[in-house]
Design a protein around this nucleic acid. Structure first.
Lengths: 190, 190
DNA sequence: GTCTATAAACAGATAGAC
DNA sequence: GTCTATCTGTTTATAGAC
C-alpha cells in the first residue's frame, strides 16, 4: 500500500473512533507509520486529508448499502435486510457521527460528502418504499420520503442509544420497534 | 450568578456546541469571564467540571420532556406533543451528541448521566405506549419498549439528518414518517 | 476565592536536507 | 517522496501571590 493510501486509511479509522476534532495529524502519522513530510507532500493539511478519507468512507458505505438494497427480495424484505445487516453497533456510523463534529459542520466541503451519502440513502429507501406501495406491501397513504427519513433516523438514533448504554441490543430494540410498525399487514410479526 | 455557576453554564454551552473533546478549559474560562484559578478552585479539572455541566443539562432535559409527557391529552397526543415540540434542531441534542464523544464514552462517570437520561426517556415513553394500548389507541401486538426505542431513535437520528443537510425540515420528515406509522387507526393522518 | 506565572506536552504547519 | 528540525500557539495543570 502506498504512503498516501496508508494515510487515508489511518485517517478513516481515527475519524471513526475519535471524530475530526479529536483526531490530530500526529496520531494519523503514527498509525500510518509516516513522517510529517509525507502528509504535507500528499495533502494540503488536515482538512484536505480528512476530506479524502471521508469521501472514501462515503463511497464504501454507499456500496455496502446498495449491496443489500439492490439485492433480491421484496421491498419489505430488502428494508429488513438493510436494518438487520451486521453492524459494529458500538462503533457508531462513520458518516453519521461526523454530523456531531463542529468543524465538519462548519465546513461546506467536509459536510458535503456526509450530506450526499445520507441523502442518497434516504432517496434509495424512498424508492423502495414506493415500490412496496405499488406492490400493495405498504399502505398507500404513506409518504415514501417520510418513511425513508424515519428509517434512516432510526438507524442513526439507534447508534446513539447503543453507545449511551454500551449495549448493542439498544440498537436492535429501535429497529424492531420500527419494523413492527412497518410490517406489511399480510405478514404481521405477532 | 456565582463564578462556579458561570463556569457550569459556559461549559454546558460549549459541550453542546463543540462536544467534550472540542472544548478546552481556556474557552470555558473566556466565556465565563474567569481565570484559571477559579476553575481549579471549584473543580478538580476539566472532567469534573464537565460532569457537573452534563448532570445539569440532563436534569433540565428530563424536566422539559416530563412537561410534555406528563401533561394533558391521550397517550398518542402526548407522544405527538413530545415529537413536535419546539427544538433548536440544528444545534442537535445536548445529551445525545455526547455519545459520539470518545472521551465521554471512555469514561463511565461521564457516560452515566447520558445513559440514565436516555434510559429514563425510553421507559417513560414505553409506559405511555402501553397506556395507549390499554386504551385501544395502539395495536395490542406492539412492544412498548421497542416502540419507545424507535421514538427516541427517530428523534436522535432526526438531528443527524438535519445537521447533515443543514435543514431542520429533515428532522420533521422523519418524525412525520414515524407518526404516520404510529397513528391510531381511529384517527388516520390521510 | 481569584489572579497571574510557569511548565511540559501537543496541535498544526513550514523549511529544507537527503 | 520522505525525513528531521523548527516554530507559534494551545492544552491542561500546578504554584504561589494577593
Amino acid at each position: 500500500m502506498t504512503t498516501s493510501e496508508r494515510l487515508i486509511q489511518s485517517t478513516r479509522e481515527l475519524l471513526w473512533e475519535r471524530g475530526y476534532v479529536g483526531t490530530s495529524p500526529k496520531a494519523i502519522l503514527e498509525r500510518a507509520g509516516a513522517g510529517q513530510g509525507s502528509m504535507y507532500h500528499h495533502f494540503k493539511g488536515k482538512p484536505d486529508l480528512a476530506l479524502a478519507a471521508i469521501r472514501r468512507t462515503a463511497e464504501e458505505m454507499r456500496a455496502t448499502a446498495e449491496g443489500v438494497l439492490g439485492g433480491p427480495g421484496t421491498p419489505y424484505e430488502r428494508i429488513v435486510g438493510y436494518l438487520r445487516r451486521e453492524r459494529d453497533v458500538l462503533r457508531g456510523c462513520p458518516i453519521g457521527r461526523l454530523t456531531m463534529d463542529p468543524d465538519v459542520i462548519a465546513s461546506d466541503e467536509l459536510r458535503a460528502p456526509v450530506d450526499e451519502t445520507l441523502d442518497w440513502l434516504r432517496e434509495r429507501l424512498a424508492g423502495i418504499v414506493e415500490e412496496g406501495q405499488r406492490r400493495g406491501e405498504f399502505a398507500p397513504g404513506l409518504d415514501g420520503e417520510e418513511i425513508a427519513a424515519a428509517i434512516v433516523a432510526t438507524v442513526q438514533g439507534g447508534y446513539v442509544l447503543a453507545r449511551a448504554s454500551g449495549l448493542p441490543s439498544a440498537f436492535d430494540a429501535g429497529v424492531r420497534g420500527l419494523l413492527s410498525l412497518l410490517a406489511p399487514p399480510t405478514a404481521p410479526t405477532a
